[in-house]
Each structure stands twice: as structure tokens, then as C-alpha cells.
């Protein structure tokens, strides 16, 4: 298997955002990162009633693709949900091949429900959530350290407060996962 983490643009054209995230991934995970071919969100994931996409369906879709990568991280501007939850920022297989991040509620200037924020802040939020979801795919669960990127993200303040980095404990657990 290729040892590359591939970013999959799902209905998103923001190249600057994608390459910022792509540049950041290898600083945390010992893999190359590349931006793969863009594609449309799977129609099967759309819930007409809620006007949101069901994240789990997107994960299934990504995981079953024949893209040659160790991990696939989908990025979309669409609003994501899972049943019973109002919305989510992202979801990942724990552990598994696929993860997805939505920029919808992260303060995108052009789209989304959060108040818009300046561009560098927006990009840093997407990076944090991307690194976070990839962490789940490598078996990491939520971390109690509020500065660790694996801290649970529910509200914006907590996302902004954390770093883009794994804390030392999570780093060790990542090592364990990768060498096991």
C-alpha cells in the first residue's frame, strides 16, 4: 500500500486551503500528503429533509474507493450530521481508512453558519480539524489536554484554544499504533 495520506476535495475548490492543510499533515504524521482528484459528494449521503449530508455515508463512500493511499481525508463545504446530532465538524473511522472534515461551521467567509472570521484563523481551524480527524483514523481517541489537537471539539472556542499539534502522550500512542 502507498504510504501517502490523500486529501479528497469534495465540492470544494479552495486550493489555498487544501495546500495549507496538505503542507501541515506531514508535520504530525510520518507520511507524505497529496491532494488527490476532486469529486462530487455522494448523492446517497444527502438527507433532503435536513438539508445536510450524513457523514457516515461519506466515510463509507471514501473507504470503498480504490484510491491508493494509507488514509483518505475528505474536505467539504457541506454541512454534515450524524443521526440524533444537530451537526458535526467532522467524523472519522476509529481506526480506519477514511475521515471527513466540513468547513461549513468553521467560519468560512463565503459560506457557512458560523460568523465569518479572518482567513488565517479559518485556515488554522480547518488544519486543526483535519489533523484531529486523521488522529482518529490512527486510533487516537479524545485527549484531556486542552492544547492537544485531539481534545474533543464541540465549540469554536475550544477549537481555537487548541494547537495543531499532538501532545506528547498522543504522539506516543500514535507511535504505538504505527509500530504495532
Amino acid at each position: 500500500m502507498s504510504s501517502v495520506i490523500e486529501l479528497v476535495a469534495l465540492d470544494i475548490t479552495d486550493q489555498e486551503l487544501l495546500s495549507s492543510l496538505c503542507a501541515e499533515v506531514p508535520t504530525t504524521y510520518p507520511f507524505q500528503c497529496r491532494i488527490g482528484a476532486a469529486e462530487k459528494l455522494p448523492v446517497s449521503a444527502l438527507d433532503m429533509h435536513r438539508g445536510q449530508y450524513q457523514a457516515t455515508r461519506i466515510l463509507e463512500h471514501l473507504a470503498s474507493s480504490d484510491r491508493d493511499a494509507v488514509r483518505l481525508l475528505g474536505i467539504t463545504t457541506a454541512d454534515l450530521f450524524t443521526p440524533i446530532l444537530r451537526y458535526i465538524f467532522g467524523e472519522a473511522m476509529l481506526p480506519g481508512k477514511a475521515a471527513i472534515v466540513s468547513t461549513h461551521r468553521l467560519g468560512n467567509l463565503s459560506r457557512g453558519t458560523q460568523p465569518p472570521c479572518d482567513r488565517p484563523l479559518f485556515i488554522s481551524r480547518v488544519i486543526k480539524e483535519g489533523i484531529h480527524e486523521l488522529g482518529h483514523t490512527f486510533g487516537l481517541t479524545h485527549c484531556a489536554d486542552p492544547s492537544c489537537v485531539m481534545t474533543a471539539s464541540r465549540e469554536m472556542a475550544r477549537i481555537d484554544a487548541k494547537s495543531t499539534q499532538l501532545c506528547r502522550y498522543c504522539r506516543i500512542l500514535l507511535d504505538d499504533f504505527l509500530t504495532a
Binding site: T82, I84, L85, R86, Y87, E91, A92, H142, R154
Partner: peptide, 27 residues
Amino acid sequence: LQEMFQGDMATAADGATLARDALATIP
């Protein structure tokens, strides 16, 4: 509760806030 509606795949969902009247959101 989350697992009850999650299907077979083990996942971690982030930003999870229970919807008000959560069960009414699932047909």
C-alpha cells in the same frame, strides 16, 4: 445512544451536540 444510530462502523463524530427532540430527526 450514539452507537444505537451509528450502524456497524466504529467512528468518532466531532462537534456532537444532541439535537433537541433528537428522535424526531430520524424517520
